[in-house]
Nucleic acid binder design. Structure first.
Lengths: 241, 241
DNA sequence: GAATTATACGTACTTTTTACACATTAACCC
DNA sequence: GGGTTAATGTGTAAAAAGTACGTATAATTC
């Protein structure tokens, strides 16, 4: 636990650095979005020859004077222009040979963003939203990271109302149900879904209706952040397996 | 994401190493045990002057040719002599100044062991089991790590039957309930607890009774690993917040 | 052997989950 | 403009799970 070495500086010899301070650390962000009834993830074409034409998560190396969490926020901000978005650490991947350029341990985060709230940088023409279910091969161990984050998301949306980060501010119950179904990959009963959601008391009826839909328009709601903040956290004590 | 540098070797200059490969990575293990109706954690006296007389988690630096998970298993094996025990990654802590010796990012794991199944090394007279609730100050950011892992454990024991790792192979329902109560810090109704546990069908009645207890002896049970393995994982789909 | 204490078991009540049916509204098509 | 289509909006009964709680039994202690 204790690296009894002084902080390396420009005069530090390699021998002094070795073997403890020879690691690189990166963060990788699984940025989820939702569009056309489909859960998507933002990917970039890998810039490594070893992974030519493979898609890669958005990541970067941790800077020497940067907190780990800050690095993931930086990646997200730089790539999407978005700030103050939902971002959570999931898991750290540290297989010896996971990166061809050397020993790079990476910490995976996932983020939930509203696709329409940002513009992909014009410069980033290698950046694209991909339906999560269409992704089979990726660079590095990124498929494994994606799978891990997706499982985490599936669990999370059932425990906390983070799902609203993926929707427009105003949404119909149908939108919300479609999104749950897309993430969880299940079909839900419409009537029981509505009942359940209304008992949470977190939806505000804004007395507006959907516009330009080719069927009877549904009511629009917003997520009541204030009420959720005040909600006493469910001190769930049960055994459930 | 791409450190375009060659793998460092003994001839690599510091300038080449900087700034990417100047991190150290450690693992820290929160090793939980259960004794005298109390949840405990295995700690060691910090060997850093900066944290003299503070207690510290068991950890070590990641070796250059070692998987991250392997490092945590190594720490556990070296310290407790135990192998094949429950061990799970929880979170990675990467604040810039969390370690006085330099930039060390640490990945926290927690483990559940049976205190009586191992002997603390005679050499490790600085190693002790501490009641979790008595710990207030620790070295580094280890108190925060401990708290994070404890919360994780509290959630986990309600979702999966990992708790049996902390008990003897044979245990009474009272033992089991006491342990749940110690971990979750709640009082449970004895009758409902029994009912719930029996519906899981994971306890095997071995037709033995407690010995040498100063009251009516209870039946002893074992955890049915085989049945749990066969149990189809509860594909829980619900919204619960 | 009476008092104490913990085990073992059962039942009524409440809450949550699940399954399922019908009327309503707006767009579309002829 | 009226019938068709496809979605929204609401209600109710049965099943399952969770909660509260009473009493008999077995072993120890004094």
């Amino acid at each position: 636990m204790t690296p009894n070495r002084k902080k390396p500086n420009i005069n530090t010899t390699p021998v002094e650095l070795m073997p403890d301070f020879q690691f690189a650390i990166s963060v990788d962000c699984v940025i989820f979005g939702y569009e056309e009834n489909t859960l998507k993830v933002l990917l970039i074409k890998s810039d490594l020859p070893a992974f030519a034409n493979k898609w890669s998560l958005l990541g970067d190396l941790l800077h020497p004077d940067e907190d780990l969490d800050a690095a993931s926020y930086r990646v997200l901000r730089d790539r999407t222009g978005l700030d103050n978005v939902f971002l959570e650490q999931v898991h750290t991947f540290g297989q010896v040979n996971r990166h061809p350029a050397g020993r790079v341990v990476t910490t995976a985060y996932y983020s939930l963003v509203n696709i329409r709230h940002h513009q992909l940088s014009q410069l980033d023409n290698e950046l694209h939203w991909h339906p999560v279910n269409d992704i089979h091969e990726m660079a590095f161990d990124h498929k494994k990271i994606l799978d891990t984050c997706l499982k985490h998301l599936q669990k999370k949306v059932q425990e906390e109302p983070v799902i609203f980060n993926l929707l427009e501010q105003k949404f119909s119950l149908r939108d919300l149900q479609n999104l749950y179904e897309a993430i969880l990959d299940v079909k839900l009963d419409r009537r029981n879904f509505r009942k359940k959601l209304f008992t949470t008391d977190l939806l505000t009826d804004i007395h507006e209706m959907e516009q330009d839909v080719p069927h009877r328009p549904g009511k629009l709601y917003t997520f009541n952040h204030a009420r959720y903040a005040k909600m006493k956290k469910k001190t769930f004590v049960g055994i459930d397996f």
